[in-house]
Design a protein around this nucleic acid. Structure first.
Lengths: 224, 224
DNA sequence: GCAAAAGTGTTCGGCGTACACCCATGC
DNA sequence: GCATGGGTGTACGCCGAACACTTTTGC
């Protein structure tokens, strides 16, 4: 493609690979205090019966990002969420002669907004990260890279906006952070730190639930 | 490739793209206090006469990383340096019908160890980052992403090992950091911070140059 | 009035930053 | 002895971490 590809290709065409390119989308959510990932059960070879990260080819006229957006929408029905490129894996599919390249993306979705695709085969299902089923190819590795990236993103971006409804309580927000980081956080420090970032803004609303003091509701500042 | 690609491909084969996949290698070095990048002058269309990031196709039996290593060696003669995947660009080459995907890598090399490829065409040349020539495609964007990543890597890894000879003085190391970060650093704070990391170790040697106190030599701890 | 979760302040240690002088050498 | 770069120490502000009690509500 760019640079000197063309001459090289012409003179060495029998030597160069024409790998197939697929887009993979690692879709995370947090449900009941647990970080979960969306997987699909493979109903045909290769790796039939194993679970895998949703993915597919890039359609004509589509950019990679559009393909990732489409895949995400096909599986979950949601759009307009956190989605960014993760890493490109060159050795995921051990196909015989031709290589393959998988461009992995990762997405964060609010579980309540999701309507999982209701196919009979290749049906998607949420899995807790600490109880994954046997995975096809090297998909453990992909999920691992995604989780590491997510942990880092959480430290310095407002990526969590995509895991929560428009308004939420401090406790709900903290539970999302704890699920991702995998450790408990101090309530007072958490509150202070988050408010210091300007990621979130207090609304004038409260939520009453149960016989105790109502909780103030917050929203993410960037999402009006 | 992974997941449900295969069935999808079969039923929609006329719809799916078979993009060409290329590897791009953004090669950085620091010379005389300036961060430089290796570019190649395109001697044939498209973008003839413009400069571009070195790159090329993946050969048969090669992984992407091996292709990147090979490309780096072809242009500079060096191996065994810092090299890591950067980002995958889907829209670099505006080819007519078929899409193309460029998997960009970035590498750090010590300029003194480099022997640039001596071709008559597609000749490589170092360019200072603040005086780049007109670039083919969107290569400015790629370089920009690489520079940002390099700045980040420098903060929390020993990536600089690849930009310096085996032993070096504190001043030399600091100049590399300053070139990459684009700002002067305080000598005392720099020394203290670097020694605190354990990235580098003092050797018992010194280097005398000029009529002043000799400088202690250091080496990176991981490279025996 | 009591159970239950919401909400709040202070202390401390580490780290990055600012800043100026003495040291070893060659000529 | 002086010019040249090498090498060192202190003070301060910020931030993350630890830690316990009061407030508001429903019943």
């Amino acid at each position: 493609m760019t640079t000197e590809t063309i001459p090289v290709r012409k003179s060495e065409s029998s030597e160069t690979r024409r790998p197939s390119v697929a887009v993979l989308v690692v879709i995370f959510t947090v449900v009941e205090g647990a970080l979960q990932v969306l997987l699909i059960e493979r109903s045909a070879p290769p790796a039939e019966g194993q679970w895998a990260i949703p993915g597919g080819a890039i359609l004509h006229g589509e950019t990679m990002e559009q393909a990732a957006v489409r895949k995400l929408a096909e599986e979950t029905g949601v759009t307009d969420v956190f989605l960014e490129q993760l890493y490109t894996f060159g050795d995921l599919d051990p196909s015989p002669t031709e290589g393959s390249v998988g461009v992995a993306w990762f997405a964060l979705v609010e579980s309540a907004a999701v309507r999982l695709a209701q196919r009979t085969a290749w049906r998607p299902k949420w899995w807790s990260l600490d109880q994954l089923p046997p995975l096809a190819f090297d998909n453990e590795q992909v999920i691992d890279v995604a989780r590491t990236r997510l942990i880092n993103k959480l430290q310095y971006t407002d990526a969590a906006y995509s895991l929560l409804p428009t308004t939420f309580t401090m406790r709900e927000l903290q539970e999302v952070y704890e699920a991702i980081l995998g450790r408990p956080l101090d309530k007072r420090n958490f509150r202070r730190r988050l408010l210091a970032t300007d990621f979130i803004t207090a609304t004038s609303e409260q939520r009453k639930e149960g016989r105790h003091r109502p909780a103030r509701l917050y929203r993410f500042s960037n999402r009006s």
